[in-house]
Amino acid sequence: MDSLLSNRLQKSVVLLVAMILLVIAMISSVLFGLHNFDLSTVVTAYTSFDGGNDHLIIKHTRVPRAITAAVVGSSLAVAGVLLQSLTRNPLADSSIMGVNAGAAFTIVLALYLFGSVFSFTDMMWIGFLGAGVTAVLVYLLGSAGRGGMIPIKLMLSGAAVAAFTSSLTSLLMLVDSKSMEDAMYWLMGSVSGRDLKHAAMITPYLLCGWVVAWLMARSLNLMALGDDVAISMGQKTVWVKATVIFVAVLLSGGSVALAGPIGFVGIIIPHMCRFIIGIDHRWLIIYSAVLGALFLVTADLLSRFLLMPEEVPVGVATAVVGVPFVISLVRRRAYE
């Protein structure tokens, strides 16, 4: 499998460049938008906060937004890598574990049963819980019977559970349209309007996810050779698979709780990274984390300018940035 970069030096240098780009993108995300600031205002917002409009916007809108986008982008991308290698399916992403649909369903159900009494923090935890429960259900259904967890069973049960829960979600929303305006805000998928404390609540979980994902890299490389080879090399495949799924659900559940369902990043970023550095998971996971963050921060920045002064959902902007890029990348290679 040939990739753009072949040796370690190249890979490290490009990774460094990507990280620098990420920092630049995050700073631009703080600086530019409907109001533009300069760097000194940002610095004074933290050194000598004066309570003025500019400082408030920077501290409570722009900075949380940039951080949320980065955290969510890299989590989704890493979850995508994990699930794609687990299922050996290039079209897999976090939605195949039913986390998006499950989180949406529990939030809408809670709003339906108790009315709009929830703060954003409550909704976030309800969503996280729903994502977890749905994923467990998918896993149990996918690994019932002889042979344990087989990718095809997992994918199919994931797709079925997701379809089922999201049809229940739309039913609830159609029957009781009143309290659903609260849910819509969350269901659209967005990185704006989150407070720094929300990101701070979820980030520790995501951080654990990233670290464990990276520690699993060698096992993932082995798993890519197929179950038989992996077992004969002494891998405890059942445990590896269970851990991989757990981490993937942690990452994608955390992201969906924080930012709502955001598609495309989880499928496409792992593929981009494979084009750049090949299939070694030790590099793939780091690259996906950095490029996923870079991608979502850039898309979020763009989403402010597409329909100025209105903002478009970040999902629209990810497609605008991503689609042409992906097509040109995919066309560069021959397959099979």
Partner: peptide
Amino acid sequence: AWRKGMSPFRLALIGVSISSGMGALTVF
């Protein structure tokens, strides 16, 4: 997805991208 012949994998990946592009256009 056509480049000196077709590959199902390329078709799928490009299909996913164009689909999500159309989804974005719809929202827009």
